[in-house]
Simulated assay, not measured.
Amino acid sequence: MLRLIMLATAGLLLGGCLQEEPAFPNVDLHGRLVVDQEVTGARQAQGIQGEYYKRVLSVNGQDMAFNDFVRHYCPDSNTRNETCIKAFRIKKIDDVSGATRFLPNGL
């Protein structure tokens, strides 16, 4: 009887430790590109001409910056979630020189 109680207690404790991944909305990670006025202004002050873009996603009918999406829905970089894996790959590309329309196949 004591074993049964201990087993049930252990099961409840382990069940409480499981972390659920945030529910992923159906989102197009390509989003749309908008001019990042802040970064563009800073670069122009340094003498670099051109516009710097950032990626904006539509998540549940609300606009969300791509970096905010990654922070909110993909907090763990070791995730196996396919959406997060693609998001991290896109983020690496965007972090180099700003958001671009031209992404590798599969993203």
Rank of each mutant, 00 (worst) to 15 (best):
I85Q: 01
D36E: 01
G106V: 11
S58A: 08
C74D: 00
D28M: 03
N67Q: 09
L2T: 09
L4G: 09
R71F: 09
R80K: 14
G11Y: 10
V34P: 00
A23K: 15
C74Q: 05
R89M: 09
V35S: 13
P104F: 10
T9Y: 11
T79E: 09
K54M: 07
A10K: 05
Q44M: 07
A99Q: 02
A10L: 13
V35Q: 15
T9L: 15
V35K: 15
L14A: 14
D28I: 07
G61V: 04
D63F: 04
F102M: 05
T40L: 00
V35W: 06
L14D: 00
N105R: 13
G31D: 09
P25R: 12
E20D: 12
I93T: 05
N26M: 01
R32Q: 08
M6T: 09
G61E: 07
L107R: 14
G50P: 04
D94Q: 04
I93M: 03
I90G: 08
L103F: 05
V70N: 12
L4M: 07
V39Y: 01
G31M: 06
H72Q: 14
E51P: 01
G98Q: 03
M6G: 08
Q62W: 05
I5M: 08
A65I: 01
L29I: 05
Q37N: 06
V27R: 06
P104G: 09
T9I: 14
V70D: 12
L33P: 03
G11I: 11
E82R: 12
G16S: 13
M6K: 14
K86Y: 06
L4K: 12
D94Y: 08
R3K: 15
F66A: 11
L103T: 06
N105V: 15
G41S: 11
K86A: 13
G50K: 04
Q49W: 02
L2F: 13
G106P: 11
N67S: 12
L29F: 08
E20T: 08
F102H: 11
E21T: 13
